[in-house]
């Protein structure tokens, strides 16, 4: 517990920092509402055109979209930690190495904290308001409390998985010294493959099979589909297990990359 305390301090620092930007949060919520409506209207149009080809129900679609908007900050692929990248580029990462904590867990915690703090301000209003929208646009309750439990576990794992995927993207800056290329490749890849551009059930079946062998399918897509009952409860443990397996692969991989990256750092004094 004692070892955890410094991370908790980190986190509360971040949340208090983020709370200063309430207007930004409000603007974000407004934007996300418009975005959510737009996507729901779009997918309903496809559904109207050919109901037999559309795999989800109206409620499932709306719920998927609203969950996505509510937890957007947690899974935002575009936002990388700018101060971490700046540290790598200007060499202040050397100071960080002097601290009596290892770098990978610290960066992991920082990344989690800034995402969670942004999401904390935004998700409740969105979920509350969208729960009262008219039929077909409403965010519905999960079929059973067990669904909710599975959703919650899977959401936490998906979030950890997202941060574990983000770490190598940050660490790659050690090798390339420029983040713009990585950012756009990473963001587009993750956005497309994790269902944040198009809900994954709407993609061709072959592509979904391919994605099921990558970690991307197990990001936000998995918890949202468990919540709405699209993934049956009996299959949920399998998804959760795969999420755990990917975490066990990606976290050591990131830590290893970090070690390699740090071995290249040359401190020039000054």
């Amino acid at each position: 517990m004692k070892r955890l305390r410094k991370y908790i301090t980190f986190f509360s620092m971040r949340v208090r920092c983020e709370l200063q930007y309430r207007t930004a949060a409000l603007a974000g919520i407004a934007t996300q509402f418009c975005w959510g409506f737009m996507y729901i209207l779009l997918y309903h149009a496809f559904r109207r055109t050919d109901p037999s080809a559309y795999p989800m129900t109206e409620d499932q679609t709306a719920t998927y979209i609203w969950l996505q908007q509510a937890f957007l900050a947690m899974f935002a692929s575009w936002s990388m930690e700018n101060d971490l990248i700046a540290q790598i580029k200007d060499g202040t990462v050397a100071y960080e190495l002097c601290r009596p904590m290892s770098l990978y867990p610290m960066w992991f915690a920082k990344c989690m904290a800034s995402r969670l703090s942004r999401a904390l301000l935004r998700f409740l209003p969105i979920l509350l308001i969208t729960g009262f929208l008219p039929d077909g646009y409403r965010m519905v309750l999960p079929p059973s409390p067990l669904h909710f439990l599975a959703f919650f576990v899977s959401l936490v794992l998906a979030f950890l998985l997202m941060v574990a995927l983000l770490m190598p993207a940050h660490i790659a800056v050690f090798f390339l010294l420029n983040e713009s290329g990585i950012r756009s490749i990473f963001a587009n890849l993750v956005d497309f493959c994790s269902g944040s551009l198009v809900p994954l059930p709407l993609l061709p079946a072959g592509l979904q099979t391919v994605l099921s062998y990558t970690p991307f399918l197990y990001l936000q897509n998995t918890p949202y589909l468990i919540y709405s009952g699209y993934v049956p409860l009996s299959a949920a443990p399998r998804y959760i297990l795969i999420q755990c397996i990917w975490l066990c692969i990606l976290v050591p991989l990131g830590a290893w990359m970090m070690k390699k990256g740090l071995s290249r750092v040359v401190i020039q004094g000054g």
């Binding site: 050919d50 713009s180 290329g181 756009s184 490749i185 587009n188 551009l197 993609l203 061709p204």
Partner: peptide
């Protein structure tokens, strides 16, 4: 790098439309 990055972004949204039509046709 930013040239290709920008192109990639709009390529993804183009691809999304393409795949949706692969399933729904119209």
């Amino acid at each position: 790098m930013s040239f290709f990055g920008m192109t990639l972004t709009s390529l993804a949204s183009f691809f999304a439309i393409w795949l949706l039509f692969d399933r729904f046709h119209t």
